[in-house]
Simulated scan of single mutants.
Amino acid sequence: MDSGLSSYLPAIELIMCHLGKSFDEACDELGLSSQERRRLAALQEKVRTPE
């Protein structure tokens, strides 16, 4: 797992759950690039559906 980007996952979850924002809106709030968003979406999917 990409440890640098994985540290954003708790913040994204917090923004999504407590503020009712979408994944993209949460990434906007954190100032993430489109490449970082794609990588985080893949990481988030791995966290939700472990092998």
Rank of each mutant, 00 (worst) to 15 (best):
S33I: 04
S33A: 11
R48E: 13
G4R: 12
A41D: 04
G20M: 14
Q44V: 02
L32I: 08
L30V: 05
E13F: 05
L43K: 09
S22D: 07
R48P: 03
G31K: 12
A41H: 06
L40C: 09
S22L: 09
V47K: 04
C17F: 02
G31D: 05
S34N: 10
P10I: 08
R39K: 15
K21S: 01
L5E: 10
L43W: 05
F23W: 03
R39D: 15
C27N: 13
C17L: 09
H18Y: 06
I15P: 01
G20F: 06
S22Q: 04
Q44W: 10
P10T: 07
S3L: 03
I12C: 04
T49R: 05
Q35L: 14
E29V: 08
R37W: 01
R48F: 03
S7P: 01
L19V: 12
C17N: 09
L40T: 13
C17V: 12
S33L: 11
P50L: 05
A42M: 08
I15C: 03
R37C: 14
D2I: 03
E13P: 01
H18F: 04
S7R: 12
F23S: 09
T49C: 06
Q44S: 12
S34E: 15
R48H: 11
D2H: 11
S33P: 11
G4V: 05
M1W: 08
S6L: 02
E25H: 03
I12M: 15
V47P: 00
D24I: 08
E29K: 07
M1F: 15
K21Q: 05
